[in-house]
């Protein structure tokens, strides 16, 4: 698939775990150019689940200064993926 690599990693944080438990959502870090449709298709193909909704949030990279030169960390996007009831994605299987 041409969009391979748009999904960077699962977001394993306290908030990610809470939304997973409460609303059955899975959180991914994705490339900023990834669209909701692309994310939906990719997740469905990679994890063999049905995605019912994708919500995204853009994050501007943090400012960083090294001496007099100033820059930014790269911008990134977070995707909250809602799955069909009964579907699950286990990142830590076998434990």
């Amino acid at each position: 698939m041409a969009w391979a690599g748009l999904i960077v990693a699962p977001v394993v944080t306290e908030k990610g775990t809470i939304v997973g438990e409460r609303s059955g959502q899975v959180v991914f870090r994705v490339r900023p150019e990834a669209t909701k449709h692309q994310i939906q298709s990719l997740v469905q193909e990679m994890f063999k689940v049905t995605v019912v909704k994708v919500r995204t949030a853009n994050f501007l990279g943090k400012k960083r200064r090294r001496g007099k030169s100033e820059g930014r960390r790269p911008a990134w996007k977070k995707a909250y993926v809602s799955l069909k009831t009964g579907d699950r994605i286990e990142f830590f299987e076998g434990v």
């Binding site: 977001v11 394993v12 944080t13 306290e14 990610g16 775990t17 830590f92 434990v95």
Partner: peptide, 10 residues
């Protein structure tokens, strides 16, 4: 990504 004491057992 987690506060102390809030890491899930899994």
């Amino acid at each position: 990504g987690f506060r102390p004491g809030r890491v899930p057992q899994k």
